Structures are given as C-alpha cells and as structure tokens.
Amino acid sequence: MDPFLRGLARFTDGYLRALPLMGRARPGRPGSIPRLAVAERRVVARDVVALRLVGDGPLPAWQPGCHLDLHLDSGLRRQYSLCGDPSDRTGYRIAVRRVGAGSTEVHALRPGDRIAVRGPRNAFPFVAEGPVLFVAGGIGITPILPMVLESRRRGLDWRLVYTGRSTDSMPFLDELPGDRVDVRVGRADGPLRDAHPDGAVYCCGPPSMLAAVRRDFASTRLHFERFAPPPVVDGRPFDLELRRSGVVLRVPADRTALDVLRDLRPNVPHSCRQGFCGTCAVGGVRVCVDRPAGDRLVLEEL
C-alpha cells in the first residue's frame, strides 16, 4: 500500500470509530427536542401511512438516504426514512408501516398533532454516480425513492427492482418513473441480473432480500439499509455488566445484549434495533446486534 492509501486507511478507520459517538442518541428534556406538526396524513398502501411534518419556517436541508429520529410521547424512539423531495424545505415526508408499538403510535397521529423530532441524519448516503441498480422490498422503497428521483434528475444510468407481496402493499407505485422500473409482485428472483459489473447497488428491504443481494453481489459498491436486525448467528454467551449498579447479566448465545437488558429494564432508552445507525454502540460494539471481543461488555452509565 502506498503512503497515500495508508493515510487514507488511517483516516477512514478513525472516522468510522467516531461515527457511533457522532450519532449516539442522548436523552434530553422533552422541551429540548424540537416538535414538528403533522400537516397531512395519507394512506399510501395497506397498513402504510405517509405523514407530512412541518415547522415554523424552513427546515434543515437533507439528502437522499436521510432519516428522522422520532421521540414518541410513550418514550419510544423510532427512525423513519425521508421519502419526499429534498428541495422542499417547507416539510418532511415519512412513510410508516404498522408493525409494532412504535409504528402503531405513529399511525394514531392526526393533522395538528405535534411530534418531537431530531435530524435529519444520514446512515445510508447516496453517492449519485452511475451506473446504479436500486433494489427495494415493500416499505424499503422509502429511502430508495429519493435516490431514484435524484438519479433521473441527474441523467444517470439507473434501474430499479421493486418487489412486494401485492400491489396494495407497495407504497408510492404511482410516484415511480415509468421507465427503468421493474415491479415484481409475489416474487423477488434474480434482482441483480441488470446490475452493471462496475456499477453500484443500493438495497433496502427485508433480511432475506439483503442476504440474497449480499451473496450475489460481492462488491464494495453494495450499499444497504436494514429495517430489522440480522439474526444472531454463531453467537457465544457473555456477561453484560452495568457498572453503576453492579448488576451482571448473562447474555445467552442466541440473544442480544439489548434483549437481555430490556428484560431487566423495559424502559431503557434505545433507538432503532436496525444495526445501521450506531446509536447504541458501546466501545465500537452495537448492543443490538454485535458480540464483544472478550467475555464481558461493560456499560458505564446504566
């Protein structure tokens, strides 16, 4: 490796180690978190609603791939991708599929309600260079849609494979450009057959789709975002120590530290459980999905 690449590697390694600290969610007083108002609520697919959130003036700029952290009144925190127009500074759009307690709470919001919001943050950045293949499954279209529209605006060489169980479960079908879009209902076979060997792939969808894409496209130009943590595979047990209280919990080989911690403290702050944003990282280990290098993981503040 030449001196330039050695320097670049050192910089990248330091930057990646710093990302968990930069993105870590910190609890704050309810009044310290900005609140946006729900200006519009629209059903865009079965069990999926789109919300337009507005403030008192222009909102911070964002790029395709960004998401918002929603601090719900119940105390839950959830992340949702921005799926509107980045050039529109008057409001943010998110789309939420109802799959659990947090999303059910979001579905209950109505125009005029206000919600505490942090962000935007980008854990899924789009480089905007072609050729590029987009692969989206169901609600995974939310971060992909702005990337598709940006690619079309820039005149890039792009394709989209969009899969779902049925058309009524697939949001934003009516907003996709008619050309270069392959909509597959009830099947997701061979999504990478149109991928350029020297191009990039951006993928968002269920774990089975991500596993297939990662298996079939072994390239550093594969970018993806998870909506669920990967399963614990070949895990091993370890101890989780809560330094302040002195409590030591045993984490089995088939469970995560966060799962075990929530058995003891159901209301412990956590953010996404998605394995991509780093908000729960402790010493470089993501509490939701990773295992520590040794036999014990120590949490200083709990």
Rank of each mutant, 00 (worst) to 15 (best):
F172M: 10
P191F: 05
P207Q: 03
Y162K: 11
A212F: 02
C204H: 03
V213C: 05
P197G: 02
H196A: 15
A211G: 04
L160N: 05
R187G: 02
P171Q: 07
D157E: 15
D194C: 03
G178N: 05
Y162Q: 10
A212K: 10
M170H: 09
G205E: 11
V183I: 15
V213E: 01
P191K: 06
W158Q: 03
D189S: 13
A200Y: 02
P177E: 12
D189F: 14
F172L: 00
R184Y: 02
L176A: 12
G178D: 06
R187I: 06
A195P: 01
D157M: 08
P191Q: 05
G190H: 09
A211T: 09
T163W: 01
M209A: 09
D168P: 12
E175C: 10
R215G: 10
S166M: 08
R180K: 11
V181E: 04
R187S: 04
S208F: 08
A195D: 01
M209N: 12
V185G: 07
T167H: 14
R214F: 08
C204P: 00
D182C: 08
T163L: 13
Y202V: 01
G190Y: 01
L210C: 06
Y202K: 03
A212Y: 02
R214K: 14
D168Q: 10
S208R: 15
T167N: 10
R214C: 03
R184P: 01
G190Q: 06
R165I: 03
R159E: 07
S166G: 14
G190A: 08
G199S: 06
R214A: 15
G178S: 02
A211I: 03
R193H: 09
P207A: 04
G186S: 01
G164F: 06
A200D: 04
L176I: 07
L160F: 11
Y202E: 04
D179K: 11
H196S: 10
P206C: 11
D168N: 15
L173M: 14
R159D: 09
G178V: 06
L192H: 04
P206N: 13
R214V: 05
L210K: 04
D216W: 09
S169E: 15
P206R: 11
M170P: 08
D194P: 01
G205P: 04
R165W: 05
P206A: 14
C203V: 00
T163G: 15
D168H: 15
A211R: 14
G178H: 10
